[in-house]
Design a protein around this nucleic acid. Structure first.
Lengths: 186, 186, 186, 186
DNA sequence: GTGTAATCGAGACGGTACGTCCTGTCTTCGG
DNA sequence: CCGAAGACAGGACGTACCGTCTCGATTACAC
């Protein structure tokens, strides 16, 4: 309705849109975030640069759109029977996401950029990928907890988040132990 | 010793060194990390660009040298009497550092860059500012703990670290509560 | 006939045609030839770009169509009684045309473009605005001359043409003197 | 002296300067004035674009510097014995220059551009290539003429100039006849 | 003192990405 | 089929910064 009314002119090309998102995905793996350029994205996608700028302002925006869906899916956990198993499975997924997954690499790059670029910070603030995924798990595992969900989230995610982002080797992490630690607090 | 050997030629100018470090400090506050350039640093310092490149490879290196001493000092806590008070004071200092301090801004910028730049990651790995400061406090407050210090560090720092870096408002944090949570685990 | 055959569909819009020609006239005065673009012309005329391209290939073509009629009229001189007066009047008109008239500005722009663009050269070759106007005057003033008309044309127009196009100030020209010079040769 | 005093920084590269001028000369012949771009010139010269922009503002300026010396030389005529021979030789050189010479093509392109670009007009006004060369010949051939040199110049050059620039075939020109016509006026 | 040598500020060098603009084509809807 | 609108791929624009390179000038140590 909002879309179909007074539309005039050539409509946006879906083909160009997915080509750009795919190019960003590929380039992130091949050359990394820092080496990615708007020019390079456009060329890789076989798309004019103006077309890229018409729909996204920065490579951060494209990366966000390209990675958000994957991220959400990778952090969604099947119920595992017990609270401890649930939390363990989630923390394992979190490590996998942050450490190895392309979507996680994108997330870390964006979060890094957000530390010194308010525009990116705002972009990330619009969709709290980690917090949302953790809330689902916590509410399922501890429906009766009286701890505010925000604080519980930080306690659950924080240690792993710090461990990975500060460059420590995730091999030194044990998800089950962390889950047990968490249950002792909450 | 390293310096006194058969050195010949004009020695490094201490004046140029501090001018560069000062310029980086100033520019970080004035224009932010992303907008800082090697060219801009050299001009602000009144120094030739070659002189900058001669002693540092990247702006990350300069920033690191400029901020490390401040960071260490801001995270060093006087013994406060009780373990809970000690830990609370440390977490308060940590929030101040990450959230408001220029040195903390530098640290966050570097940590962000480290997520997609291995050279910066290595730089940070060389000096574990957060981990070192936390270890001191933990060993003082809990001399008898049998939990590995690395894990204890992650449990202590993690929630606050995640809270701030993910863009949440530190006003929602309560250091004493977090310290109590921590003591329940360890 | 050409028009009356089995034409089908919406006929060419006269309104669009004159809007484009008017836009070109306006833009030539307002921003000059070099700054004119096909995009700008279409927008100024309130016309689709495709409509412009459908009927003209280049801005030179539009400008030519827009200025030709004016040029012809500005260079047509009423008989003035004597050959000398006729020629003087013509040379004065020529200076006015080349120096101040919008149509003259268009002509000079096109002639300039023709020096490095064969397509424009061919366009101008199709209608010899200056030569045709001079021939009329010369044949009227000197019906018995045995000098080839082409050479006479060059002798009459050349000095003024050179003067103006090489950027000299037309104030330094005296049409009557030039007419006398011309009569001495022919 | 003026140059050698307080110079600081790396001096301008003569090698880059001649590479650019040579590239412009080549490109003018190969692809023509209109198709020449600053980007193309820089690439052809194996030079950074900034280097081109540092020393010249427009392709017109480069072309002017590249062609001026050639033009001057091509229009300098050896004394031929008689005024008529002198003037004939000059007019023949003028036709050669305007019609066939690469330097002449450059001149025509610049003169064309000058018709709608005041910056180029000013550039050409700074060095009156045609006028200067004609003055030399006229003053040598007619040392006692009382006609102002500017007017004599226009009478001498004008017809040929008009003939060539308006796209007429120079085969139809006869230099000796034009020289005779000129002598009849002056 | 007189080299010798590494430093300094300055600024030009060849490159490359930036974000904008225009090109000429295309794809939509409405007359 | 024409027309307005506007997105498309492409490519030049002029600018900024990259990291390197030459300059002349300075400043130490070794002779």
């Amino acid at each position: 309705m909002d879309d179909a009314r007074g539309r005039v002119g050539r409509p946006r090309s879906e083909q160009a849109r997915v080509a750009v998102l795919q190019a960003v995905d590929d380039l992130l793996v091949e050359i990394g975030y820092a080496a990615m350029t708007m020019k390079g994205i456009a060329e890789r996608a076989g798309v004019g640069r103006q077309t890229v700028y018409r729909w996204w302002s920065t490579k951060a925006e494209i990366l966000f759109e390209a990675g958000a869906a994957d991220a959400e899916q990778e952090l969604a956990i099947e119920p595992a029977g017990s609270p401890l198993d649930d939390l363990t499975a989630y923390l394992e997924a979190l490590v996998r996401f942050l450490w190895r997954s392309p979507a996680g690499a994108a997330y870390r790059a964006l979060l890094g950029e957000a530390q010194h670029d308010p525009a990116v910070a705002e972009l990330l603030a619009g969709k709290d990928i980690l917090g949302d995924s953790a809330r689902v798990v916590i509410e399922r595992a501890l429906p009766d907890s009286r701890m505010p969900i925000e604080r519980a989230t930080a306690l659950l995610i924080g240690p792993t988040f710090f461990w990975v982002l500060s460059g420590r080797d995730p091999a030194g992490l044990d998800a089950r132990t962390l889950a047990e630690d968490f249950l002792r607090q909450v």
